[in-house]
């Protein structure tokens, strides 16, 4: 896609700007859709209807109306807040989650930057989100916000380890961090996907990744950073208007990013499940997004199914269950790869 655009536009800088803007064009409609979708799913799981009026058909325009309202709102900064950090924090959070999209391959023809260390880069830049959350929580000068931010940071830092180790299992098989390369290694039919390879090691790795990624994006059952019943709304309690919208957008962007990594690393990414049937760059985009959305659906489904964990249970699951299991899987896959050589 890059070479093609350079051919048309004859200007490299313009092409890079365009390439960088592509994920943004995806994130914003996705977030609008996902918020509506989440409200509909939660409503139907609780035997109600959810938004029905705005826009006519099943309230499809509800989130568009919401975002228009948010844009128009007055920009309120609490008197006791730290103004500079309070203003900066939403941007740091969003930059962190948007930067991850640079290495996510949307289709065989489009990836922001085909770097050799793609996966490692995504793991690294997501740490900007942690610092941004701490910044938001601290600058709000509110106990709930600070507690929410602290819990979020503690949780993300601990669950980064099982996430990295479970992805490492696949990296050891392919021998590269390049996500396009990982995609190409899974081409063909769906039994070539890494989740079904080296059975059952990588299946367990995929499960560990999914559970830990739920904690990384603060979703139920790991949503103690935002536990409404104790912390009001966690680190974004004091935020309103456009800044709140930005934090919310970052949250949904993160949700899609972790789902996209799960889809790419374990479920074939843009590969069609049926060999050559419906494959190609454009169908690749379709498969990639469907797989990502399937994981988003599971995120939402779990939110209305499971109760929230306590802090000690959260730490128990992270450190005493997921981490030892992922170490065993890394060792097992290592031996398997070495012996099969």
């Amino acid at each position: 896609m890059k070479e093609f655009l350079i051919d048309i536009l004859q200007n490299e800088i313009l092409v890079y700007v365009l390439m960088a803007a592509v994920p943004l064009v995806w994130i914003i409609p996705f977030a609008l859709f996902a918020v509506w979708w989440e409200r509909k799913i939660s409503a139907h799981m609780q035997d109600r209807l959810g938004p029905m009026r705005t826009g006519g058909w099943h309230g499809w325009a509800q989130t568009i109306a919401d975002i228009l309202k948010l844009i128009q709102k007055e920009d309120i900064i609490p008197a006791a807040a730290d103004r500079k950090l309070f203003n900066l924090a939403p941007y740091v959070v969003f930059v962190g989650s948007f930067a991850a999209y640079a290495a996510i391959p949307f289709s065989a023809a489009y990836v922001g930057s085909e770097i050799n260390i793609g996966l490692f880069y995504i793991l690294a830049v997501s740490s900007f989100v942690v610092v941004g959350l701490l910044m938001a929580g601290w600058a709000s000068n509110n106990k709930w916000s600070l507690f929410g931010a602290m819990r979020a940071a503690a949780q993300i830092v601990s669950y980064e380890i099982p996430v990295a180790l479970s992805l490492l299992a696949v990296v050891m098989i392919v021998g590269t961090f390049d996500l396009q390369e990982i995609n190409r290694a899974q081409s063909g039919y769906f039994w070539n996907w890494f989740v079904f390879q080296k059975f059952p090691l990588l299946f367990v790795a995929a499960t560990i990744y999914f559970v830990a990624s739920l904690a990384e994006v603060n979703r139920t059952p790991f949503d103690i950073p935002e536990a409404e019943s104790e912390l009001v709304a966690g680190y974004h309690t004091e935020y309103g208007g456009m800044k709140f919208a930005l934090l919310f957008l970052a949250e949904y962007a993160n949700m899609f990013a972790v789902s996209a990594i799960a889809a790419t690393v374990f479920f074939g990414g843009w590969n069609s499940p049926f060999g050559d049937f419906m494959s190609g760059p454009v169908w690749g985009l379709f498969w990639f997004i469907s797989k990502g959305m399937a994981f988003i659906f599971v995120h939402m489904w779990l939110r209305w199914t499971l109760p929230r964990l306590r802090v000690d249970q959260l730490m128990y699951v992270g450190w005493k269950v997921l981490i030892p299991f992922s170490f065993v899987i890394v060792l097992g896959v290592g031996f398997w790869v070495m012996l099969a050589r």
Binding site: F120, L123, V130, V157
Partner: peptide, 18 residues
């Protein structure tokens, strides 16, 4: 570069902020 971000931002800076 990536290791720098992972270790210093994700680890050390978060620890210091805590």
């Amino acid at each position: 570069a990536v290791t720098q971000v992972l270790i210093y931002v994700g680890g050390i800076l978060v620890l210091m902020l805590f």
